[in-house]
Amino acid sequence: MAKVIVVTSGKGGVGKTTSAAALSAGLALRGFKTAVIDFDVGLRNLDLIMGCERRVVYDFINVINGDAKLHQALIKDKRLENLFVLPTSQTRDKDALTQDGVERVIGELREEFDYIICDSPAGIERGAFLAMYFADEAIVVSNPEVSSVRDADRMIGLLTSKSRRAEQGEPIIQNLLLTRYDVERVEKGEMLKVEDVQDILAVPLLGIIPECPSVLQASNVGTPVILDEKSLAGRAYAEAVGRLLGDDVPVTVPRGSKRGLIDRLLRRTA
């Protein structure tokens, strides 16, 4: 049966689109037919992160309005057989999303796909609400930073009370994805620890994505970072996908093998 998963956060810039792109590519890599939808109407970006920006003809809003068929708007990924992108409109505003329209498109996708990933816009307004409303599961993305944790908490509250599943008395499954984690700063006491964030938010941890240069490099060229299998972030996303699929992999704190020269010398003499 198809599963609808929203990638959400409340706060902007924490890595929702990066995560939605990586997780959907990871699910496709594992053999599941996956569609990823951009809900950020007016600020289209998923297409760019997925590297299909020059192939956008029709979008989500065209499908909702009946101007295009779903299969015309879905863009097939050039690297992965099972991966499809549904871009959003760049010109309309968020009112172009209607609840009935979103329900119809998601319903249609459910018939054809194993996973439907909804890339939520920031905020808690219409776009963010509709991105999460029909979801079976939610991945709440947060950085180890106070404002992002607060907004994640707010989002968890909304998922718990305002999603369709919540209204039907069947709770939405929630997971936390902690991104931009810098283990060295955590060890210096400069950054919230994963345990602290988990304690505060009280949602199961799907993974820890380290602060990693590969994320920007992947976005520069329009490749989901999970395809950079050697990178720390890519590996962390691959493990998160595994856990999403029920793999029994303990969450580890990602750590690079490279250390600064001074740091190495200090450690050697210590």
Binding site: V146, R150, D153, K188, G189, E190, M191, L192, I200
Partner: peptide
């Protein structure tokens, strides 16, 4: 010694979120 600002972050969040919830 480096200041442990992460502890302050945790405490502030705990207080704030307890009230917001």
């Amino acid at each position: 010694r480096p200041k442990k600002t992460a502890e302050a972050a945790r405490e502030r969040l705990q207080i704030l979120l307890a009230h917001e919830r």
